[in-house]
Design a binder for these strands. Structure first.
Lengths: 184, 184
DNA sequence: TCAAATCGTCTCACATAGTAGACTTGCGAT
DNA sequence: ATCGCAAGTCTACTATGTGAGACGATTTGA
């Protein structure tokens, strides 16, 4: 159901270490993390804390975000439908499924919004990203910084510059739509 | 001396949560992480594991790498000389200082290579990055996939496509040079 | 062939990450 | 007031991440 980053980090860590031809002891000395711990992380027997991840990425000369990003890219490129992580908002019944494998440059997200439900996002949630909404089924009211749009199945909307916005489903059956997220 | 990512994560976590107007209990329910723990992380009293970071970023609908990257961007934009993290290779005496604040689009790194020292990198360490070397002091022999270059103070070299490469200092005094890293 | 070094894993002691639930504070509402 | 509720912190406990060093396996080297 959900994706533990410790798995992807394990293989990336091992890969980066071996690419440099460093032994566990080498990396331990360079990073200040014990070799026992590094061994456990590589074998997925422990989930490292942010602090040790910081030390490890420092030894590689990589910002932590880059290490994590390459871990996400190194993960499977095929995302099987039945394994795509689904997330539910316990209050509204909003349902979100992550279609794309982790690390994709454009991220596909399938959303199902129950009849009558409404969900809103602050502008800050969209910083540095561009998104399009393509309605698959049902109807969707979308408001963006006060301006409203009414979308039906097949319609596709490109979101403008970041502003507070909200989705709501005015119909009597769930609305399904695809969100395409590009970051940059 | 060194930068614990837990600090930057703390403020970013709080920022993302409050931007969505979620209480600790809200985020706890959505992420499956206890509110006590979220509180500790936000107050820098704990360094979260990769596993809980994965759950938290999932609740925000963000890939973990994006969450970490925004944490790095949210950190100080001024990097004081005396606080720049220095890293030493215990074997060769190689010295690396991270000049740029974390999250900069181009990263400045000052390196000091002791007389006679040699350091090499596999091609894989350079994937998805472009780099330039500018010699500040001393002399530097650089070999890139078999091709050699001899650099003196003031010279600047743009590295080509990823290939195994090595730095060595043929002189009798340390070589100092600046590495400019751009990722994309 | 045997010693010495190296590598990854394992053991154990300890610190700390993580949880459930009680507690404190602050804010309306009537 | 004072009740009720919600938000964040604290307490007590458990699970697990982390480090120092031992161990067996493999390699190196004379």
């Amino acid at each position: 159901m959900e994706h533990d980053p410790a798995d992807a980090i394990a293989s990336t860590l091992k890969h980066e270490r071996e690419a440099r031809k460093w032994s566990l002891a080498d990396l331990a000395e360079r990073s200040g993390v014990s070799k026992a711990m590094i061994s456990k992380i590589e074998r997925r027997e422990a989930s490292p804390t942010a602090t040790v991840l910081g030390r490890l990425s420092g030894a590689f000369g990589l910002p932590l975000s880059v290490l994590i990003a390459s871990a996400e890219k190194a993960a499977e490129r095929l995302s099987l439908a039945e394994r795509q992580p689904v997330w539910t908002d316990p209050e509204t019944g909003y349902l979100r499924k992550t279609i794309s494998p982790a690390g994709a440059p454009a991220e596909l997200i399938e959303v199902s919004l129950p009849a009558g439900a409404r969900i809103s996002y602050p502008a800050s949630a969209f910083s540095f990203q561009q998104q399009q909404i393509w309605v698959l089924e049902g109807r969707l009211d979308f408001s963006e910084g006060g301006v409203g749009h009414v979308l039906k199945a097949g319609d596709c909307l490109l979101l403008g510059p970041p502003s507070d916005c909200a989705f709501s489903n005015p119909g009597t059956s769930p609305a399904r739509y695809l969100v395409v997220l590009s970051r940059g």
